[in-house]
């Protein structure tokens, strides 16, 4: 199966001269549909920077990001309409799950999901019904009209999962999705992500310190000082 996401010698450098910091150093990775990849590593190892570049939110200093066979990023010396095309690529290919949920407090659970459908220009008449269906898929049928302030952390993260799934993107990127949840709820969220990978052929990338995530992932990449130190597949663990 051809990879849906491929990184080729991706590097991100911040600052210049004495302040130059190499956050990610020539990392190459690939990710297939139905695969769940976990990126682990100590704080400052470059996990989030790598995830940002994978999701076309952060422009790499050099290297290539290839999505579904199309190269979407180039080094800083090349002329590239990066900021022009990236929003559409993010909309088309990615769903995001954040550590702090990042839900809109002024929108109900259903509206938080329908916002993304609106952003992706889905059929206006079906928007609310589609959003409600996604909310129900994550067991929140009775909480659809609640605002985030009236929901638990686990419920908020499930709304975030529903939002990530809105518009049916092939890749879901999750940044520390269990960090603000208790152990049981965190496990629940990881199971949902696993289900999305297996049942809906989503490619999932999780950045996490959570040891429970290791047992769920198909592959674990250990990052240190911006470089891949080690990669393990499920069979090797």
């Amino acid at each position: 199966m051809a990879p849906i996401l491929e990184l080729k010698k991706i590097t991100k450098v911040y600052g210049e001269g004495e302040n130059r910091v190499v956050a990610v150093d020539s990392v190459s990775l690939s990710l297939k549909r139905q695969e769940m990849l976990l990126i682990m590593g100590p704080s400052g190892s470059g996990k989030t920077t790598l995830l940002s570049m994978m999701g076309c939110i952060l422009r790499p200093t050099s290297g290539e990001v290839i999505i579904d066979g199309h190269t979407v990023s180039m080094g800083k010396t090349a002329h590239s309409p990066y900021e022009d095309v990236m929003p559409d690529i993010r909309k088309q290919y990615f769903g995001f799950v954040f550590q702090s949920f990042n839900l809109f407090p002024s929108l109900t659970a259903v509206d938080n999901v329908s916002l993304i459908l609106r952003l992706k220009k889905h059929d206006g008449k079906k928007l609310q019904a589609d959003a409600r269906r996604l909310i129900e898929r994550f067991g929140l049928a009775k909480r659809g009209d609640f605002y985030p302030a009236d929901m638990s952390g686990g419920e908020k993260q499930r709304v975030a999962l529903a939002r990530a799934l809105a518009g049916d993107p092939p890749i879901i990127l999750a940044d520390e999705p269990t960090a603000n949840l208790d152990s049981k709820t965190g496990l629940d969220v990881l199971r949902h992500l696993r289900e999305l990978s297996e049942e809906e052929q989503k490619a999932i990338v999780i950045v996490s310190h959570d040891p429970k995530a290791e047992t769920m992932a198909d592959r674990v990449v250990f990052l240190e000082d911006g470089k891949i130190r080690n990669q393990e597949t499920g069979d090797q663990r």
Partner: peptide, 13 residues
């Protein structure tokens, strides 16, 4: 800002 940043990350221009 956080919400606008989220919107941008999710693909809003």
């Amino acid at each position: 800002l956080r919400e606008f940043g989220t919107l941008k990350a999710l693909g809003a221009r």
